[in-house]
Every structure is written in C-alpha cells, then in structure tokens.
Design a protein around this nucleic acid. Structure first.
Length: 362
DNA sequence: AACGCGTGGTT
DNA sequence: TAACCAAGCGT
C-alpha cells in the first residue's frame, strides 16, 4: 500500500514509546471529570460518542445526564417512542443521530441480547456507528487497540508529525488511522485515544494552542519549526445559501395553534414546526393564496414582528414571523394539526421554531 | 467524493 | 460580524 510506506516514512525517526508514555501520563493527570467517564459501560460510551459528534462537551453534558436517566440501558431506549427520543434530543441538532441510535439499539437488543458488540465487524454494521465511533467504543469500553480518529486526532497528529494532507478530504482520515495503528498503546488504548482527543480539546486547540503546556512539546515537529498554527491544512467549504420564509403563528377561535410535522427524511426529520411559506418566488399576497391552497384555511395577518435566522451547516433560513388568525376554511393537510398551547411542550421543535413560542397568546 | 445534516461558542 | 469550529455519518 502507498499509505503504508508513507506512514513508515513519517514515523521513521519518531520515538513512539516516549510519545505514548508522555500522553498517557498527562491524560491520567489532567483529564476532565465527565459523566461518561464514570465507568466503562459500553452503552454509556456509545451514547456519549454519538452526542459528541460535531458537538461540544459543555453542550452534551446536560443532555447526556438527562438521556441516561430517561433511557438508562439499551432495552429502555429500544422500547421508547421515537418522538420521546427526539424530544430528549431537542436542541442538540443532527437529529438523525438520535433516530439512528435508536435503530441500532433495537438491533442490539434483538440480535445481541442487549449487549453492545465488542468486535469491529458487528459494531461497525450498526446504524450511525462509523469508523470513529466504532474505534471509540472498542478502545474506551473494551480496551481494544483500535484507532478512533476524529478532528482532534487529525489536528494533533498533523502538528506533532508535520503531516500536510488536507484533513477536509475523506481519504486523509485513513492516513491518520494507519498512523494511530502504529502509535497506539497496546497496554492502555483507552487512555491513548482519549488522551489524543483531550490534548486536542485542552492544549492543541485550533486557534491558539498552548504549546508551552503541552506534554508532547519535545516531540512536536510543528512546534519545533514554529508552524503549529499553519497546521492542519484544511480547505474551506462554500458558504450557506440564504432562503427567505414566512413563519406563521396561526391561532383559531378555540385558542389553538397550528403546527405540522416535518417529513420523516431529510432536514430536521420528524420534528415539528410552525407552517412556513417559502418566499423565493412569492410576495406576501401570493403567499396567502398559496397557503389557502395548501392548508385549506383562510387567514389574516399583520406586519412581520421579528426575523428569526436558522443557520444550518449548508443553508440559512431567514424567517419573518407573522401572527395570523383563522377567518375561514377547513384545515385540510396531511401533517398539520391544531394543538393547545399546553400540548406544545410534548412535541420536539428545532431551536429556531422554539423562538416563535413566545407569540402564542396562552 | 461531495454533499446533506443543527446548534452554539469564539474570534 | 461573518467565518470558523466542535469526540462524524449516511448517501
């Protein structure tokens, strides 16, 4: 393999034992106390790893604690209602993580008697468990020397070993996995992998790395050359497209509010929202006609009261909030319904739509 | 391979 | 403030 030879070349003059010892000693001393580090329960490790995907530790902590109280083991999560799981995930983002996690946990209960698989093959076949999560569970929960390469690991290693591969490219992850296979401690793969990530989170940060506090400073090629802020190399992504909408807070004479469930696939799947009208090709007047055709309701509304932005990874909704009331017609829409303000709290909403809750009259 | 998929903190 | 970033995965 070409990667094999590169890896060999990169590590030819590198003291692996010193690196392992420095990293693991540092991790054992400096690691943060986190709820998912209380024990090695594979289910807890699994849930934490899913929640932590592209998400900060501080954000995850309260979600994790609540989730574990509500779904303490695979069986309880497998048996739960999907809407209840999404409600527990509300605000955390990337909601397919929650649905995939439940799908996978059901499989673990059905096929593995509720025991999280401890081998790469079975684990990697579970929905939502990719190369990183697989390695994280195997090393942290089962003390197996498998690589767990995330953004931290690529940043840390790109600096220590001076690797200039573009970490935005999928193929680059495989280079770092090979490097970790060579470097990982067989005695304590858990502390090794977690140590790499902890170092990336606390010391070897993207913007202003604290090299003077780094346990690997002696061995870091980037620090030696003063180029630590030049690494890793990462090509930038294109910026999000803006899409204008009206967001309609609609009440009927009974004081109920119109909400609808989003499709079960795609963006914010299965979450609930206020009706939205895309404004790309419509003015406000045409929007009313469109709404009547779509929902069967005649409504009146005033001037927009607020603009709410919803920034996604790849697009931005710019929503004008309009307060409306029903003046005629009959609701005729597959996924929409009127609910009382009290009932709203049982439905999972994206954060942007939660911001419109305050316009309900109670 | 490239893109779709959330949200909040930092700079 | 807009851009960047955070313990990625599915398609």
């Amino acid at each position: 393999m070409k990667n094999q030879e590169r890896v060999k070349d990169i590590l030819s003059d590198f003291n692996k034992t010193q690196f392992q010892n420095s990293l693991i000693e540092w991790f054992k001393k400096e690691q943060r106390i986190l709820p998912w580090r209380e024990n090695q329960d594979p289910y807890r490790v699994w849930v934490s790893e899913i929640m932590l995907q592209q998400t900060r530790v501080d954000t995850v902590i309260p979600y994790f604690n609540h989730f574990m109280e509500k779904f303490p083991d695979p069986k309880s999560l497998a048996e739960a209602d999907e809407q209840e799981v999404l409600k527990a995930w509300e605000g955390l983002g990337y909601y397919s993580r929650a649905r995939n996690l439940q799908t996978a946990v059901k499989e673990v209960v059905a096929d593995y008697d509720g025991v999280v698989p401890d081998n790469p093959k079975d684990l990697g076949e579970l929905k939502g468990v990719g190369p990183y999560t697989k390695g994280a569970i195997l090393s942290i929960a089962y003390d197996t020397p498998e690589p767990a390469v995330d953004g931290n690991v690529m940043r840390v290693l790109s600096r220590i070993l001076h690797v200039e591969d573009d970490i935005a490219k999928p193929s680059t992850r495989k280079v770092f996995e090979q490097l970790v296979r060579e470097l990982i401690s067989e005695e304590d793969p858990s502390s090794f992998n977690q140590g790499m990530m902890e170092l990336g989170a606390l010391i070897c940060t993207p913007k202003n790395p604290s090299c003077l506090l780094c346990p690997i400073q002696d061995q870091c090629r980037a620090f030696e050359q003063g180029i630590e802020t030049e690494l890793p190399v990462k090509t930038s992504k294109k910026k999000q497209k803006k899409v204008p909408y009206l967001l309609l807070v609609i009440e009927n004479d009974a004081g109920e509010v119109l909400i609808e469930q989003r499709p079960s696939q795609g963006l914010l799947a299965s979450l609930w929202q206020y009706p939205m009208v895309a404004l790309e090709d419509l003015d406000h007047e045409a929007a009313k006609h469109w709404f009547y055709g779509e929902y069967g309701l005649k409504i009146e509304w005033g001037e927009p009261v607020e603009q709410i932005k919803h920034v996604f990874s790849h697009l931005i909704w710019e929503m004008e909030v309009v307060i409306a009331r029903v003046v005629g017609g009959q609701l005729d829409h597959e996924r929409a319904q009127f609910v009382t303000p009290q009932e709203m709290s049982a439905y999972p909403f994206p954060v942007s739509h939660q911001k419109a809750h305050k316009y309900i009259s109670q």
